[in-house]
Amino acid sequence: MAKKIDIEEMKKDVKALVAGIAEVPVEDLKDDAAFTEDLGIDSMMALEIVASIEKKYKVVIPEDKIPTVRSLQNVYELLGELLKK
């Protein structure tokens, strides 16, 4: 049976999680902001984000997918795919 996911709820939670790690106010965090250029998220923060998402949603994010995740929008898409499986 497919897992039921509330996409809007997931987006809100992921946004809060990324804002916390990047030390950016949630209200300033735009879905299309570039992690590195706009938000100053470095590889260590990215690792924290990945680990936190994996823990929260009980998914495994493949290491080769990490460089393709450059914005919150990318995170939503990737997580949406992983949760469908």
Binding site: S43, M44, L47, E48, V50, A51, E54, K55, E63, I66
Partner: peptide, 10 residues
């Protein structure tokens, strides 16, 4: 180990 990858870990 919580998350250990080729380029780093937590």
């Amino acid at each position: 180990g919580e998350k250990v990858m080729d380029k780093g870990g937590i």
